[in-house]
Simulated scan of single mutants.
Amino acid sequence: MMHSVSLKLFAEFNNLTSLHPTPTRFTFGPFNFPVRLNRSKRNCKLIARVSERDDGGTESEQNTTSFYERNQMYVLMKQQMELAALSENYEEAARLRDSLKLFEEEEPVLRLQGLMKEAIANERFEDAARYQNQIKEIAPHYLLKCSSDATTLGIRVQAKSVYIEGRSQPLRGQYFFAYRIRITNNSNRPVQLLKRHWIVTNANEKSEDVWGIGVIGEQPVLLPNDSFEYSSACPLTTPSGRMEGDYEMKYIDKVGSKTFSVSIAPFALSTLGDVTDNI
């Protein structure tokens, strides 16, 4: 038996003439629910209902799916709190803030994350390891950091992602992440980056391969000890996921050199950031 989360959002705003006055349905990740608008009031309410269904599948798959559904609800609640504050509905913003705090205390992964941070701060490392293992059981990919660092044949690739809330629309299942890449040539030969290959995986384990020539329109040459940095972005249909891939490069100090692959280690795309933030 698996718990599923059904969400119904009733958003009521004043003087938002661009919004439809009649009920509109939005697709939100695996959910489809109405947003009802009324210009005469100024409040936002989020109602969550938990139901049970038998979907089969392994316990690990069920736990992971349940976590990511709750993650979607958490992100939506945060957005509604900020929206209430922007509309100067401070009473509603305070209510949502308290609801988020309660959510963090009761949501298993977030609660275990807090316990793990506390255990590390107090040097109770055996307890921290136990909490970490429990998180792995509930959400195996949650402990993947929002950064990675890998070296192949002396070429070092560092990656870091960040959630861009201002360009995301959780109601429509649209989450926007920016990432920054730093490539450093620690070898003793000059190299050129020719092609890129990304594997983007969302929270539902749906992967997409993306190939391209160079990066941001360039095929940079890196001399020994040189670095090249660039930023790009990745939209996602779930509030978390991961990216990994490789660059095709070649040495340019010898005619006819064969190309070789440089690994980009996996890093998380997460609206919640790293579990180990501030540790």
Score class of each variant (00 low, 15 high):
G29D: 05
L100Y: 01
R36A: 04
R189E: 15
L86T: 09
L269R: 07
F125H: 01
G245C: 06
I47V: 06
P30M: 02
R36P: 00
Q80P: 10
N133T: 03
I183M: 10
M73I: 14
M116S: 04
E106P: 10
S270N: 14
F10H: 14
I135L: 00
P170W: 00
I264M: 15
M249P: 02
Y247F: 15
M73L: 15
M249C: 07
G154E: 04
P108H: 00
G57R: 00
I155H: 13
K78A: 13
P23L: 12
P170S: 00
I213F: 12
M243W: 12
T259D: 09
K206G: 09
C44F: 14
A150L: 08
A129W: 00
L83P: 11
G245A: 10
G166E: 02
V210N: 09
E137V: 04
G173F: 03
A119H: 00
R42T: 07
D54V: 04
M2P: 10
S87A: 08
K78P: 13
E59L: 10
M243C: 10
Q113V: 06
Y131C: 07
Q174K: 06
T22Q: 15
S87E: 11
P23R: 12
K8P: 07
K117Q: 11
P21A: 08
S87F: 06
E118G: 02
S231T: 06
R156H: 10
E126C: 01
A265Y: 11
Y142Q: 13
E126S: 02
E208Y: 14
G217C: 05
A203Y: 00
V191C: 06
P190I: 12
L269F: 09
P34H: 07
L193F: 05
G256K: 03
M2R: 13
G212F: 06
V255P: 02
A203N: 00
A159M: 12
L16I: 01
F176T: 09
T201M: 02
L223W: 15
A159Y: 10
S227C: 09
A129D: 02
R172H: 09
R70V: 05
V262F: 13
Y131A: 04
E137P: 09
Y163I: 00
P190H: 14
L272F: 11
S187Y: 01
G56F: 05
M1F: 10
Y230N: 07
S18D: 09
S232D: 07
Q62D: 02
L83A: 12
H197N: 14
P21T: 05
T64H: 13
S270P: 13
L110F: 02
Y90R: 08
E12D: 10
S99C: 04
V75A: 11
N278M: 08
P239H: 03
G212Q: 05
F67R: 03
E244V: 10
I199Q: 14
Q174N: 07
A139T: 11
L19D: 05
T65E: 02
K136W: 11
A139I: 13
R182C: 08
V157E: 14
G212D: 04
F260D: 03
A233K: 05
L171S: 03
